[in-house]
Amino acid sequence: MNQWLLYGVLALLPLAALSGFLMGRKHRKGKQDNRLSSDYIKGLNYLLNEQPDKAVDTFIDLLKVDTDTVETHLALGNLFRKRGEVDRSIRLHQNLIARPQLSSRDRNSALFQLGLDYNAVGMYDRSEKLFKELLSDPVHKNESLVQLLNIHQLTRDWDDATKIAEELQSSLGVEQSKPIAHFYCELAAQKRQDGDIKAALSNVKKALTINPDSVRASLLQGDIHLQQKSYKQAIKSYQRILQQDIAFLPEALPNIAEAYSNIKDNSGYRSFLNKSLDAGAGVSVLVELSKIIQAEKDDRAAAELIGNFLKERPSLKGLQRLITLHIEHAQDSAKPSLQLLDDIVEKLISKKPRYACHNCGFETKAIYWQCPSCKEWSSVKPIKGIEGE
């Protein structure tokens, strides 16, 4: 017998023991069933002959569905699902539901487990139907709402996700403003892609009403206004990020610069950058401001600005900008060394992640509004410090 088969047989022994126990109890009550006895022996023979699949089915059949064994069936189904044997779990739960003598409470428990089975194999239409049916059951309502919310997010059905999240918030009192705002942003992005700008802006407005601190909504609103050449409105939307979460400001900087450029307000852009730095913005804003000072004054003034900043807040990105400013004015003998240092810092920056999830620690170079690892909304944020902003 190979190692894995041995493990499988050992795992079935508790089930065999339980079947034997139930059979023995019936015998003590004077209800001995010869067929039950022969089937139990048959199950043991399957175990001994290294046929665990047949043994499982035999022992399950021996567990007559009644108030004493429903929990055992549900536990077995849960075990099968966790082991990846979802087909067997589905069959077991379907068998339970088909029993006419099952109480409504036990039937609903089996329905919920069957819904989890369907989720595990991606049969979301079937699981959605079951969980909707269970919304009328006070015992399973909240759990079913959670499962429905997960399904709608996985299938990107943002309208239904919004409705379920609102019902979940009302039912459980669990704050859902952040995910609901993201659902409206998802709808806005879809409408924008379809060319329905009015509907897109309407959904963004709903997102900001639900969660005034939604950086994503401000970015999206600013992008739409910029696309529509409503530059002042775009700037107004982007500026909101300073109060919402200034760490995300670098995401908007190129578009902010474009908006100010289109209204020919260079002094306004410079004033905005200075205001942002005073409010605690990171090195990306500093680099932008240094470019303006370099153009208006000279490299020395830009380098002085960067240097003063780095004394208080060391940054690889700031260091690279400082090296770039010094290369042009360095002696010929020093230029190769400075260029090498610049290349090294550039490689360090390019290899480092820019964002991290504050919930699970997931790191990435691209921004995600929902963490791909833990599925939490608004948990992925720009990294701060010497390797970030």
Rank of each mutant, 00 (worst) to 15 (best):
N150D: 15
Y184H: 13
K82D: 05
N119R: 08
D87M: 02
F80E: 03
L79Y: 12
I60Y: 08
S144E: 07
D87A: 10
D87S: 02
A189T: 15
I60P: 06
V86D: 00
A199I: 02
D106G: 12
Q153E: 14
H152L: 06
F112H: 15
Q190T: 15
R126T: 07
Q113C: 14
K129M: 11
L74G: 10
L145T: 13
K163V: 09
L134F: 13
V86C: 01
T155D: 06
Q193V: 08
I164T: 14
A165P: 03
E167T: 11
A120D: 07
I60L: 15
V70R: 07
N142I: 15
R91K: 15
V65G: 07
D196Q: 09
D125C: 02
H182S: 06
C185W: 06
E166Y: 05
S202M: 08
A98L: 08
E128W: 01
R126L: 13
K82W: 01
K132C: 12
A189E: 15
T69Q: 02
E166K: 15
G122L: 01
D157E: 13
N203C: 13
D159I: 09
A181V: 00
L154A: 11
A188M: 10
K178Y: 06
S127I: 05
G173W: 08
L135S: 11
R107F: 06
F183L: 07
L130D: 10
E143R: 14
K198T: 13
S109Y: 06
Y118E: 04
P138Q: 10
Y118G: 01
D194V: 02
V139H: 11
S103R: 06
D196I: 04
K198M: 08
K198P: 00
H182E: 10
R81K: 12
D66V: 04
K198N: 03
K163P: 00
L149V: 11
Q147V: 02
E167Y: 03
S89I: 01
R156N: 10
V70H: 12
D159N: 12
F80A: 04
H152Q: 12
D137I: 11
T72H: 13
S127M: 04
R88E: 07
L76I: 13
I164W: 14
E128F: 01
I151S: 01
A161V: 09
K191L: 07
E128Y: 00
F80Y: 13
L63S: 04
H140F: 14
L62T: 02
L63A: 04
T72R: 11
L149F: 11
I60V: 15
G195F: 09
I90H: 00
Y124P: 02
N119V: 01
G84P: 03
Q94V: 01
A110K: 03
R126W: 01
Q101S: 15
D66E: 12
A98E: 09
K191R: 15
T72K: 15
D137V: 02
R107S: 14
Q113T: 09
A188H: 03
N95I: 00
M123E: 13
D137K: 07
T162L: 09
D137W: 05
R91S: 08
V70Q: 10
L111V: 05
R105G: 04
Q113V: 00
L148I: 14
D196Y: 04
C185Y: 08
G84F: 00
R156L: 07
S177K: 14
L130V: 07
D160G: 00
N95L: 04
S104C: 05
L149E: 10
E186K: 05
S177Y: 07
L145F: 12
A161Y: 10
